[in-house]
Amino acid sequence: MRKIILIGFALMLGTLIAPAQVPVEKPLELGKVESDKLTEASGIASSVPLKGCFWTHNDSGNKPEVFLINSKAELISTIKLKDVSNRDWEDIAEGIGPIKGKYYVYVGDIGDNGGIRNSIKIYRFPEPTTIPGKKTEITPDVLKLKYADDPKDAESLMIDPISRNIYILSKREKHIHLYKTKLDFKNGDHAVLEELIKLPYTWVTAGDISKDGHHIVIKTLTNVFYWHRADGESVEQAMARPARQLPYEVEKQGEGITITADNDGYVTISEGKNTPVYFYKWKF
């Protein structure tokens, strides 16, 4: 997202409810992203096989590259996605995929400020099990998606390991929409996003589901919200309940959130040069 939005406006629109807060410690700054390659971070995803590392990417109009950073926010690897473009990459997720026991990285080319795109895309590639070289290339699988209703601007991509679904949240309506599709797609597949429920939030810039599927977070420009998902419950059933609000120190243009691989908290990232990466430890 390139447009600068006034924080006061975001505060007014950020949520329509006042959830109770979950006790969380003050955030820890893991480090600052000092690489000039990553100046418009628009998403972040924690890695299971690469412990302590995170995947991220730039916003629209940049090169089709995914970056791996370590627990100090240092850039350690750049992966170019071949034969695709970065029309409007807005979020990234890590999770299960078509092969059991393997993890995959999902990149959401899902932004649409004007609500005019006929289709959006998700790019998927197998996650390396060891730190890749400083520069490498990979050809991702591509899933082309359409909404069941009208085109939407979206910045939140979530992978559910329990139902094996991909979830997308719209961004800017007064009441946003939650959509899903199956994650077991093949390269070149087309699918229609199923519309599920409306939620009383707006300007939602990121979301994540934990690796065990029981923790769900989304963030607006000014707030972070949380749901615990019970056994036997779908994501949409869990999110239909009122959320609990998590502490969040407003970033300049915070557009990324991920739950850590071991479920001990969540990490946020913002657009901008020398942007800090924050870790919030939660207690339940």
Rank of each mutant, 00 (worst) to 15 (best):
E236I: 11
E236C: 08
E236L: 11
E236R: 05
Q237Y: 00
Q237H: 00
A238F: 08
A238R: 03
A238Q: 00
M239F: 06
M239R: 02
M239E: 02
M239W: 08
A240C: 03
A240T: 08
A240F: 07
A240I: 08
A240R: 07
A240D: 10
R241D: 05
R241Q: 12
R241Y: 00
R241A: 14
R241K: 14
P242C: 11
P242H: 04
P242L: 12
P242S: 04
A243E: 07
A243Y: 04
A243V: 06
A243S: 14
R244Q: 13
R244P: 00
R244D: 07
R244W: 12
Q245W: 07
Q245V: 12
Q245Y: 02
Q245K: 15
Q245C: 10
Q245E: 15
Q245L: 13
L246G: 01
L246D: 08
L246Q: 05
L246N: 01
L246M: 13
L246A: 05
Y248S: 05
Y248M: 13
Y248T: 02
Y248A: 03
E249L: 15
E249K: 13
E249T: 10
E249S: 10
E249M: 13
V250N: 00
V250C: 01
V250D: 03
V250I: 15
V250G: 01
E251C: 09
E251H: 09
K252G: 10
K252S: 07
K252R: 13
Q253S: 11
Q253R: 08
Q253K: 14
Q253M: 14
Q253W: 09
Q253E: 14
G254D: 06
G254I: 09
G254Q: 09
G254E: 06
E255I: 13
E255V: 12
E255N: 03
E255R: 05
G256V: 10
G256E: 02
G256K: 01
G256Q: 07
G256A: 15
G256W: 04
G256I: 11
I257G: 01
I257C: 01
I257L: 09
I257S: 00
I257Y: 00
I257V: 14
T258G: 05
T258M: 10
I259H: 04
I259Y: 01
I259F: 08
I259W: 07
I259E: 05
I259S: 07
I259M: 04
T260R: 07
T260P: 01
T260C: 11
T260E: 05
T260V: 14
A261N: 04
A261K: 06
D262T: 08
D262S: 06
D262Q: 04
D262R: 03
N263Q: 13
N263I: 11
N263C: 13
N263Y: 06
D264P: 00
D264I: 15
D264L: 12
G265C: 06
G265Q: 08
G265P: 03
G265A: 06
G265W: 05
Y266S: 04
Y266K: 01
Y266Q: 01
Y266C: 03
Y266L: 09
V267I: 15
V267P: 03
